[in-house]
């Protein structure tokens, strides 16, 4: 891969404008730390203070990691519509990070389930995927996330070509849909949160439809302030 990351190299990138404007660097760093926060809190409590996570710490950890996976997916999906509505093009700089955080939380979520619920008993895990639709759906969503995480680098965008890369990454919509379905089918009776997630996914998909997209652009309250964009 590339040479090891060093401060001087990062500084060179900033000088060249490769990382966007200078103010974007600390903002990105702050968002990065913010995204790590739920994981850090769960990890700390899980290791040193499990009772802070309630009577069923494993359930709290697994559910919370799953919730954050969906949230990062939904926030990531909101970037493009927000960008065309507000005209703030720099928002795009956060999309990959949010997507990769969704993937990281999905990995942690899966790992916690494999370890805490199934103790890595692979036979049981296969049974679970076959027998339980909500687990099957979650598993498929995770499998679909893998190629997106792998091809998230600049190198892969070049290798695939922009159009094909964009087409592949449209998979994020079915992934978000399956993620919400996974949550929906797990819940015993109270569908409040799955419903909220479903509405957000639906709105985000709607925002992609061309007439809606151009309507948003034309009716942006921000357009006057950032004329020329």
């Amino acid at each position: 891969m590339s040479e090891p990351l060093s401060l001087s190299r990062a500084a060179r990138w900033i000088d060249k404008g490769l990382l966007g404007p200078v103010w974007l660097v600390p903002v990105k760093a702050a968002v990065f730390v913010l995204c790590l926060w739920p994981l850090a809190r769960l990890g700390y409590a899980g290791l040193f203070d499990p009772l802070a996570l309630g009577a069923n710490p494993a359930e709290t950890i697994i559910r919370s990691l799953g919730d954050w996976t969906i949230r990062f997916l939904l926030i990531g999906l909101a970037i493009s519509p927000l960008r065309s509505w507000t005209g703030i093009n720099h928002l795009i700089a956060f999309r990959r990070m949010l997507g990769l955080f969704a993937f990281a939380y999905a990995c942690a979520h899966l790992l916690a389930y494999l370890a805490f619920d199934r103790l890595f008993q692979w036979g049981e895990i296969v049974q679970d995927v076959i027998k339980r639709p909500f687990i099957a759906v979650g598993f498929i969503a995770f499998c679909l996330l893998l190629p997106l995480a792998v091809t998230s680098t600049r190198g892969w965008v070049l290798r695939l070509g922009g159009a094909r890369w964009a087409l592949l990454h449209r998979l994020v919509y079915p992934i978000a849909f399956l993620g919400v379905l996974h949550d929906w089918w797990l819940v015993k009776r109270d569908l409040t949160w799955p419903l909220i997630y479903a509405v957000i996914v639906a709105l985000e998909m709607l925002a992609r439809v061309r007439p809606v997209k151009s309507f948003l652009k034309q009716h942006s309250p921000f357009q006057q302030n950032i004329a020329g964009r």
Partner: peptide, 8 residues
Amino acid sequence: RLLPSLFA
């Protein structure tokens, strides 16, 4: 899972 154990 015998609560509050992590492992089932």
